Simulated scan of single mutants.
Amino acid sequence: MNNYPFGSNSPKSFNAYPRGDFDIESGTIRRTKKSRNSSFFLVRMIKSLANRLHYCYKLHPFLVFFVSLAFGVTILIVLSLYEHRYRMLRNYGKLDDGFGNYYPYAKLKNLVMVAGHSVYTSSTCGKVDKEDSWFLESYQKNPGQAATFLRHIKEGVENSARDDAALLLFSGGETRKDAGPRSEAQSYWTVAESKGWFGKEESVKWRALTEEHARDSFENLLFSVCRFRELTGTYPQNITVVSYDFKEERFANLHRSAIGFPESRFFYTGTPASSTSKEGALKGEASVRAQFQQDPYGCIGTLKKKKVGRDPFHRSIPYPNGCPEIEGLFRYCGTAPYQGTLPWA
């Protein structure tokens, strides 16, 4: 007698039911679905997409070319913007990351900037409130003019004395050829020193410094922000500007807006012009303000020529080397507001 195994190949083996799971209650067979290979399916999708693109290219070659080119350029622009933003924020984030000891004023958070208007030319400091001790332009030769400079210096010192976290900067370059290679900023610092810092020497002197390259009011603000970064390793949380009261609109609106600094963190201390120069000062200010409205960054036309004229010793400006995060702002020249990323925005 032959013994046959009852395996799948046995002549006696048979399938009583079709392959699958038999449901006894319903009497139906549930077919087992074969799982798709996901990687194989993805390859087929890519091939299908490639075939469709190839077909479209044959029908409309120029259209496909320009669409592809536009898509590629868009991707490059987006990647470039994100890369620039990432690099800037990474650098900015590292300002206080282990480098605080390298910045002599790292603990100071706010900026008080006094805008310079003249160069002190006297060989002594005994007549700081006299006009003949200062180099004055024709429109500045008015009784009481020197006293207004002294008032600005005092206001800057007193503002700083009220804020222990403030860095005081006198701003102004070597703007007058006949005054010699002496800066407005250094002149103001020297006068403050001669006045004993108006009784605030111990509190203020150690954190009172200069920015000696600005040639106009916009540069007074922008350069001082960069100088603050050089000295502290970061950018000011708050800014206070000290100048004439009739220049408030120029500084607090035009210049502040041009650098994109928040209005809620910007403050202005204005002092009056001398009584004999007020009328002429207001007329001159209206003219300059109109020029900055047309040229917010002072980089074209009349404002640019004025800056060139205020650089008689052809000084090289070091900025923005000390504030690389806002290099784009320094390079920008246009009538519309700067659209780049700013650390304080």
Score class of each variant (00 low, 15 high):
144 G>T: 02
81 L>M: 14
71 F>M: 13
76 L>G: 06
187 S>H: 01
171 S>I: 06
81 L>H: 12
69 L>Q: 07
195 K>R: 15
117 H>C: 05
106 A>T: 12
92 Y>R: 08
163 D>N: 09
64 V>Y: 02
151 R>G: 13
119 V>S: 03
86 Y>F: 12
193 E>N: 11
195 K>L: 15
107 K>P: 09
81 L>V: 15
173 G>E: 04
79 L>G: 06
123 S>H: 09
147 A>R: 08
77 I>L: 14
113 M>R: 06
195 K>Y: 14
74 T>E: 11
64 V>G: 00
190 T>G: 07
84 H>R: 14
160 S>H: 03
135 F>N: 02
166 A>D: 00
133 S>W: 04
67 V>R: 01
89 L>D: 08
110 N>P: 06
73 V>H: 07
104 P>I: 06
97 D>G: 07
189 W>V: 01
123 S>C: 09
165 A>V: 15
105 Y>R: 07
117 H>M: 09
87 R>Y: 12
159 N>R: 13
161 A>N: 06
133 S>L: 05
172 G>R: 00
153 I>A: 00
133 S>P: 03
74 T>L: 11
124 T>M: 07
165 A>Q: 15
115 A>H: 08
82 Y>C: 11
94 K>V: 10
160 S>M: 07
71 F>H: 10
192 A>F: 00
179 A>S: 05
192 A>R: 00
157 V>N: 00
162 R>F: 08
62 F>K: 15
65 F>W: 11
132 D>C: 10
78 V>N: 04
112 V>C: 04
72 G>M: 10
127 K>W: 08
130 K>L: 13
79 L>D: 09
175 T>P: 03
189 W>T: 01
192 A>P: 00
183 S>D: 02
186 Q>W: 06
122 S>E: 14
124 T>H: 08
61 P>T: 03
61 P>F: 05
126 G>A: 14
136 L>W: 01
163 D>V: 05
95 L>T: 12
117 H>R: 05
79 L>A: 13
120 Y>N: 01
